[in-house]
Design a protein around this nucleic acid. Sequence first.
DNA 1: TATGTATGGTAAG
DNA 2: TTACCCTACATAA
Length: 264
Amino acid sequence: MPEGHTIRRLADDLTRDLVGQTLGVSSPQGRFDEAELVDGKRLVRAEAHGKHLFCVFANRRRLHVHLGLFGRVRRHPSPAPASALRLSTRLVLAGVRYTYTVTGPTACELVTPTAYRALQARLGEDPLHEAPDLAAIQAAFRRRRIPVGQLLLDQSVIAGIGNVYRAEILFLCGIDPSRPARDLSDDQIAAIFETTRRLLEAGVRDRRIITIAPDEIVGARSRLRRREAVYVYGRKQCRRCESALQTVLMGGRKLAFCPSCQRG
DNA sequence: TATGTATGGTAAG
DNA sequence: TTACCCTACATAA
């Protein structure tokens, strides 16, 4: 589930459902023992930066959640059914009408202002934020000779891209993933950035990753299977030209690309 | 029941 | 680069 769009959507949902309310905060699993420090406090704000979620409480405590690869968030009507509070549930945020539960996160902790600043400092531009700095991204590309396919997963450059979006962005921009980042033109970097923003925004709206053009969708969007919703990720053949896709391991993760559509 | 895989990240070597 | 952490689900046996 979790690339940048998921977390932004989650922050928006929490803002709508829980902000302004006094929350019951607990950890059935017991591994988030700081829960008691914000239990019974009013939630003031929920915000996303890349794949990181922050919840600020009225007592100025700040909750940091990172879902990692396995983390999942579920929303239940309050009071949550007992099945939602199973032993693997790390975090419960219980509001008036809705209760959110989190399982399997990489991080679920209260952060000090210092730790928060350190975290922000190593996160790059979030394309979903108000005024992202394109020039800073272009400068970051210039500094690196690693393959662009590897750079796109570096959260200190652009925050929020994951393995699915990486493959789709490079495809849509027609860029060979192996090209050194510093060799890309400013226009290509700008195109990568604009494509990232467009896809993430669509992901927030759709609550899922759909990268194909609207007019390519046949039938109901809800019945669109994941493999049919993308051009290259998880596929064997290019959705556009039917060429056999190539797969490389880049940044330790599988990356599929179309040798015919991505020569630039 | 066991195995493999997954939209992520950190820390050790 | 590798090992490791976190959970759920699909598929194999």
